[in-house]
Amino acid sequence: MSMEQYIETVIRPKIQGDGGEVRFAERRGDELTLVFQGECSKCLILDRCVHWIEAEILKDLGERVSVRAIRKKPFFWDT
């Protein structure tokens, strides 16, 4: 399974289950860029989820990556 498939099919449904949203943006070497929307975009403790995603990737895919989280806030939270 590619990293993009993994994010889209394994991680994303779980994030969506909490009213969040995550999309694969790109991977450059060990750096994985993910875009967070929905509730994730304003989560005060998103970093904890990011570390969890990194750990899940290591557990399931055996790859050590560093996730760069981009928050895409909707206009009504963008104050």
Binding site: G19, E39, C40, C43, C49, W52
Partner: peptide
């Protein structure tokens, strides 16, 4: 556990929202 608390007007609930 979920990121959306029972009631967003309860500040104590809001302060602890988050998946982890």
């Amino acid at each position: 556990n979920r990121s959306k608390p029972d009631d967003e007007r309860n500040p104590e609930s809001l302060s602890v929202r988050g998946c982890r």
